[in-house]
Design a protein around this nucleic acid. Sequence first.
DNA 1: CGTTCTCAATAATAGGCCTTGTTGCGAAGA
DNA 2: TCTTCGCAACAAGGCCTATTATTGAGAACG
Lengths: 165, 165
Amino acid sequence: MSVLIDSAAPSTEVLAAPLAAGELRASLHGRGQRLTPQRQRVLALFKRIGEGSHLSAEEVHQRLLGSQEKVSLATVYRSLRLLSSMELLRELELPEGGRRFELAGDTHRNHHHLVCVGCGRTEEFESSAVLAAGEQAALGQGFRLIECVLNVRALCPGCAAVQNG
Amino acid sequence: MSVLIDSAAPSTEVLAAPLAAGELRASLHGRGQRLTPQRQRVLALFKRIGEGSHLSAEEVHQRLLGSQEKVSLATVYRSLRLLSSMELLRELELPEGGRRFELAGDTHRNHHHLVCVGCGRTEEFESSAVLAAGEQAALGQGFRLIECVLNVRALCPGCAAVQNG
DNA sequence: CGTTCTCAATAATAGGCCTTGTTGCGAAGA
DNA sequence: TCTTCGCAACAAGGCCTATTATTGAGAACG
């Protein structure tokens, strides 16, 4: 599932969050809801700032405006609530007032898939070696790692037998 | 450009190669052509047997029939020609008659992407460590490795500056 | 014999239209 | 002050239709 894009700019839809976009869309559809640019922008912002950071609604709003992504404040509130209800974001209970949100921890930074191309059987695994390689690659280009996902396409024993037989 | 097709497995859609199918589709559409189950089946077959093996049209036909995937012989010929023209398959020039086809070698088994989620900038890299991890994961489950692709989602220096600024 | 062609039948897409979830804005509530 | 509401305008996605690329079966080709 390699992604090769030539011109970088407005193709963020596809590139920014290949897996997330599909997941988010499916998740929304399952609830009869829609995938809108605004919701993507809000979630993408949290992906960008990384897992640790938390933002208030107003901060989200300002950051988005700052990066030329127009989303009204009301929609920011609505999106934060929605994404939180979907457990993509987590609402922090900070005692000093303002509510803040952060990326829910289920965004595996090191979560890989072993998929049989024959039957679709999927095994999940983690690998510190892969994570290390991803970090090295990112650092090598001066990038800041967000997450890395290794997709191993393979043939399970059963399907291999069918093929060879 | 590597293009992966998911096999007949229904649940594979999301995990196996969500973007890959899109790439092939886009590639076809760019030429005013369509993505059909037959074309997917032919290409998927080659993916399954792996990079080394080569098949004749008749063998492709038989194998597909053998796995309950109905594709007429004429369509097999047409698909082989089309996929070859797209450089997804390569036609072997075997002196002893019958033409044979194999998966085009540009299907890197160890070809990874470092993608900036901010601007879409993409860097490609290879990593023997990742390949090794993929092989280990496959072998650990008794799978036969076909290829592994690591997608590293990150933030490039420029976008990181914007975010932090 | 392996491969390509013919042609009616099939089906992948594009393009509209429509339904209804969402957005933006300003007012209202806490 | 921070957050939610109300409502008209907007737009994502589903459905349907028309278009036309593609398929399947068998004849024709070399």
